[in-house]
């Protein structure tokens, strides 16, 4: 079959948008139909946000929009203009792990790691709203994020532990907590 040369995207005009992602401003040209998940991953290179279904079910693509967990596969990037987007990269300290990430490591709350960023984003939002969630609350919140590897048990344990650490350290600031937690995590290893 003969090949047809690629042509300019006739009939698919792009629009220029400005996105605020993890505190950084990005100006880029997008088609209105491009999903936020695709733009984060393939235009901005933030590949920590994963795409598992594009049906709004699996939760792997969860990001924070103005601090609230939302599915980035159920939103167009154009719609995210004027909002603060936070991805897993934005919840990760420069060095080491956040207290929540460290709790996931301690409890073996991840295997293949694909659902993990969505879990981290969702749970981070939970712990900001609820310092001491009970197991039922944790499971209810996690029920929007499918994990096929862990059976959730270690994730629930990690969330409970992270909540405890957070309460005990009274940590309001991620950066401060991150350092101490990383040391604690290192000390427990093996």
């Amino acid at each position: 079959m003969q090949s047809v040369s690629e042509s300019a995207a006739a009939g698919r005009p792009k629009t220029s948008i400005t996105l605020m992602v993890n505190g950084q401003r990005h100006t880029l040209d997008v088609e209105p139909r491009w999903l936020l998940s695709d733009v984060l991953r393939h235009q901005l290179g933030l590949t920590g946000t994963h795409v598992g279904c594009e049906q709004g079910v699996c939760g792997s693509c969860t990001v924070l929009l103005d601090g609230q967990p939302q599915r980035s596969c159920l939103m167009f990037a154009v719609q995210a203009e004027g909002h603060d987007i936070t991805t897993v990269e934005g919840l990760t300290p420069e060095q080491g792990l956040s207290p929540l990430q460290a709790a996931f490591e301690r409890h073996h709350a991840l295997q293949c790691g694909f659902c993990t960023p969505g879990m981290i984003v969702t749970v981070e939002a939970l712990l900001r709203e609820n310092a001491d969630p009970d197991e039922e609350t944790i499971r209810e919140v996690l029920s929007g994020n499918i994990c096929r590897c862990t059976g959730y048990q270690s994730i629930v344990a990690a969330v409970q532990d992270a909540a405890r650490v957070r309460r005990e350290s009274g940590a309001a600031k991620l950066e401060v907590a991150a350092k101490g937690q990383n040391e604690a995590a290192g000390g427990e290893q093996a």
């Binding site: 709004g56 969860t62 929009l65 609230q68 599915r71 159920l74 939002a125 929007g144």
Partner: peptide, 9 residues
């Protein structure tokens, strides 16, 4: 309704 990340939107 749905899950948290659905209800927020």
């Amino acid at each position: 309704i749905g899950h948290w990340a659905i209800r927020t939107r």
